[in-house]
Simulated scan of single mutants.
Amino acid sequence: MGLTTERVTRAGAELADELGFDQVTPSVVARHFGVQVASLYSHVRNAQDLRVRVALLALEEMADRAAAALAGRAGRDALVALGTTYRDYAREHPGRYTAAQLRLDHATALASAGPRHAAMTRAILRGYQLTEPDQTHAVRLIGSVFHGYITQELGGSYDHSQPGPQESWERILDALDVLLRHWPHEGQP
């Protein structure tokens, strides 16, 4: 079969997009390749290892896309590019996007592309003249808004109401831009 850790991980990612991340198990991946589950265990230790590998792949893919989208952009343009990159990735790869939200242990998280995501968000915030500790608060706000909206949209929360989700997305990006330009400093109401 020519199985490798990379092939097993990529198959897990494809199956996550097709079936949902919670359905990705070594037995499902083994069926995909037409092999016994034991054949996978020289490439992944167990179901959790497979899930972590899919999450790391997704984080890396999103970071690469975000870096390309952010190149040469600043301020609102950069904010929109980052959010749009995440949203587009989630639409194209819903299972991988879900995988990217997996809680990783500290060492794995530090070695992942997660810090690249935070660094890119911080780079955007420098264009808004935010410094610490406000930068950290703003990184968390942006992540919460982007990932919360995208997760709800993927779950169908906005399918049955008007205005449509695209209009709301654009308004949310506008509101985030205004908030970041007028960030309240400590002691301000």
Rank of each mutant, 00 (worst) to 15 (best):
G95C: 05
P165M: 00
H117A: 13
G156T: 03
R103V: 06
M1V: 12
G75M: 09
N46R: 02
R76E: 05
A38N: 14
R53D: 01
S112M: 00
G72H: 14
R73A: 12
R103S: 07
A175E: 11
V28W: 10
P184Q: 07
D134Q: 03
A11W: 01
S39Q: 13
R116A: 06
A119Q: 15
D177F: 04
G148L: 07
T84K: 11
A74T: 13
A175R: 11
V44Q: 07
G155E: 14
P115Y: 04
L110D: 15
G155F: 01
R65F: 09
A111E: 07
S39T: 14
Q36E: 15
V178C: 07
I124L: 08
L70R: 14
V8S: 07
A118G: 14
A118M: 12
M120E: 02
A30P: 13
V145C: 06
E61D: 15
H43S: 06
L110P: 09
T131F: 02
A47Y: 01
D77N: 10
V8A: 01
M1R: 12
E153D: 14
F146Q: 02
G155R: 14
L79Q: 05
H137W: 06
E61L: 14
Q162C: 02
Y89I: 10
W169F: 09
L70H: 14
F33V: 12
T5R: 08
Q188G: 04
A90Y: 07
A119T: 13
P115W: 11
R76W: 06
P115S: 04
M1E: 09
G187K: 04
A74K: 10
Q36T: 15
G148W: 06
P133Q: 00
D174R: 07
E14L: 02
G127L: 00
M62S: 12
A71P: 10
A90H: 09
R87V: 13
G114D: 05
S144L: 00
S27K: 15
V29A: 04
S39M: 01
E18V: 15
M120R: 09
A90W: 10
R53M: 00
E60M: 13
G20K: 01
A175Y: 12
I124P: 11
S27F: 08
R31E: 12
V139K: 05
M120A: 10
A16S: 06
R91L: 04
R122W: 08
A99C: 04
T9L: 07
N46W: 04
F33M: 14
A111V: 10
Q166L: 12
G2E: 12
A71H: 15
R87G: 11
E18G: 05
R51Y: 07
I150P: 06
G164W: 04
